[in-house]
């Protein structure tokens, strides 16, 4: 997907929960310090990752959703830094969701963010495996911070 000059709402909501989804300029080229969706990934493919995360309720305790995109026997890369998992922070009712590719490691957080939980939790990966989105081996590799 090319760079987005402005945020753009997906025309249809998710199938299960009816969530609206916003493609944000920040994660499509506007902020080079932020995680970026892979330019080769179409907006429809990005939305499909979110839709499937909602369909299988791949959520953590805070209501964030997490998605992957299986491709052949592996997982497709979603971000420009080889990320294979995407995070969709919880959005209040009636507000559109957005998402971004998630780095595999917990970074050294600034002091005001220290103590925040590591995302995704191990439970999230177990849900992905139970939904058939990833294999057991891929779950363990992702839990280690490796590529799958």
């Amino acid at each position: 997907m090319p760079t987005l000059p402005n945020d753009q709402l997906h025309p249809t909501p998710t199938q299960r929960s009816g969530y609206q989804y916003l493609f944000t300029a920040k994660h499509h080229g506007a902020d080079r310090n932020a995680a970026q969706w892979l330019p080769e990934l179409s907006l429809e493919e990005e939305f499909a990752v979110f839709d499937r995360a909602d369909q299988f309720e791949i959520a953590d305790d805070d209501g964030w959703l997490f998605g992957v995109r299986p491709e052949g026997s592996g997982l497709r890369e979603l971000g420009t830094w080889s990320q294979q998992v995407a995070a969709f922070p919880y959005a209040r009712e009636g507000r559109p969701w957005h998402g971004y590719p998630l780095l595999p490691l917990d970074n050294l957080a600034p002091q005001n963010r220290q103590g925040e939980r590591l995302r995704p939790s191990k439970d999230v990966f177990l849900k992905m495996e139970a939904a058939g989105l990833i294999t057991k081996r891929q779950r363990i590799q992702l839990m280690k911070g490796d590529h799958a």
Partner: peptide
């Protein structure tokens, strides 16, 4: 018990 933890992940 670990004696020290560096609070950032590694590969």
């Amino acid at each position: 018990r670990p004696r020290g933890i560096f609070p950032a992940g590694a590969h």
